[in-house]
Amino acid sequence: MPQAWLPPAEYIETLPRATAYACLYFTDVLGRPFQLRPVHASESWHWPGGSMDPGETPWETALRECHEETGLVHHGEPRLLGACFTTHRGEDWPANDIGFIFDGGALTDAEIASIVLDPEEHTDYQLRTLAEWQREMSPRAFERLAAIDRARRTGVTVYLDAPDED
């Protein structure tokens, strides 16, 4: 028996919930990944980025959030390194997360020196080798970093499927 047609607003109510975010992956000219320490999760590190606003594309989100969080204005072209889907089960966060990680390129010494963090969002930034990051991060978070770094070096986009965040 065919399904009855639903008006768009009713149909949307039947779909799974998801939030979307986008970010930029930077290294310095030596290839060391750049990450920010968020105020709300001082034990973790993130790339410059955040949640999409209504009507915004993932690329527009990545550029806006990077500027808001670091003061950097990125002028490159959109190059998707990876997409990440995180499933959430439970009452704490009743939606999944869909993320887009874009290549921000290599930051020059002058760009790094110009970084101004938003103190309401981040307390620190670091540039470290992958080996140094591995000692600092949870295994799952490091796997994500290593996969995105590998995507940058090989030119092969990655898809990351993850259970609840750590």
Score class of each variant (00 low, 15 high):
residue 126 Q to T: 12
residue 107 L to Q: 06
residue 102 F to C: 05
residue 22 A to H: 01
residue 146 A to K: 12
residue 119 P to Q: 09
residue 11 Y to R: 14
residue 71 G to D: 08
residue 71 G to Y: 12
residue 82 G to L: 05
residue 123 T to Q: 14
residue 108 T to Y: 10
residue 73 V to M: 06
residue 160 L to A: 11
residue 162 A to T: 15
residue 23 C to M: 06
residue 130 L to E: 05
residue 22 A to C: 09
residue 31 G to A: 02
residue 144 R to S: 11
residue 2 P to V: 14
residue 30 L to P: 00
residue 140 R to A: 15
residue 69 E to I: 01
residue 34 F to Y: 07
residue 123 T to P: 06
residue 119 P to L: 08
residue 35 Q to V: 00
residue 142 F to K: 08
residue 66 C to L: 00
residue 124 D to S: 11
residue 127 L to A: 12
residue 141 A to K: 14
residue 32 R to W: 07
residue 14 T to N: 04
residue 141 A to Q: 14
residue 93 W to S: 04
residue 98 I to Y: 09
residue 41 A to L: 08
residue 42 S to I: 06
residue 7 P to M: 15
residue 17 R to F: 00
residue 163 P to D: 14
residue 6 L to D: 06
residue 132 E to M: 05
residue 90 G to W: 07
residue 86 T to A: 14
residue 78 P to F: 10
residue 11 Y to Q: 12
residue 83 A to I: 13
residue 5 W to R: 14
residue 49 G to H: 01
residue 124 D to Y: 08
residue 75 H to W: 03
residue 76 G to V: 00
residue 123 T to C: 10
residue 40 H to G: 06
residue 117 L to F: 03
residue 68 E to K: 11
residue 121 E to Q: 14
residue 118 D to L: 09
residue 56 E to G: 04
residue 3 Q to R: 13
residue 87 T to L: 12
residue 35 Q to A: 14
residue 82 G to W: 04
residue 51 S to W: 03
residue 126 Q to W: 01
residue 164 D to E: 15
residue 65 E to M: 09
residue 88 H to T: 01
residue 11 Y to C: 07
residue 40 H to E: 11
residue 127 L to E: 11
residue 142 F to I: 09
residue 135 R to Q: 15
residue 52 M to N: 02
residue 81 L to Q: 00
residue 96 N to M: 08
residue 88 H to Y: 11
residue 155 G to F: 11
residue 48 P to R: 06
residue 94 P to K: 01
residue 68 E to I: 03
residue 21 Y to M: 03
residue 157 T to F: 08
residue 75 H to I: 03
residue 68 E to T: 07
residue 116 V to C: 10
residue 27 T to E: 07
residue 35 Q to C: 07
residue 26 F to T: 04
residue 117 L to P: 05
residue 150 R to T: 14
residue 62 A to C: 02
residue 50 G to C: 02
residue 163 P to W: 00
residue 90 G to I: 05
residue 162 A to Q: 15
residue 107 L to M: 12
residue 157 T to Q: 15
residue 156 V to K: 14
residue 8 P to R: 10
residue 53 D to Q: 09
residue 13 E to T: 12
residue 103 D to I: 04
residue 71 G to V: 08
residue 51 S to R: 13
residue 8 P to N: 09
residue 74 H to T: 02
residue 20 A to E: 13
residue 47 W to N: 04
residue 22 A to R: 02
residue 141 A to G: 15
residue 127 L to R: 12
residue 73 V to L: 07
residue 114 S to M: 06
residue 125 Y to Q: 04
residue 41 A to N: 10
residue 107 L to R: 07
residue 131 A to T: 10
residue 76 G to M: 02
residue 146 A to T: 06
residue 90 G to L: 05
residue 146 A to I: 04
residue 10 E to F: 03
residue 70 T to S: 04
residue 29 V to W: 03
residue 123 T to Y: 06
residue 88 H to P: 06
residue 158 V to N: 11
residue 150 R to N: 12
residue 85 F to A: 12
residue 15 L to D: 03
residue 127 L to V: 12
residue 133 W to R: 03
residue 74 H to S: 02
residue 133 W to A: 02
residue 138 S to T: 14
residue 127 L to T: 14
residue 29 V to Y: 04
residue 55 G to W: 00
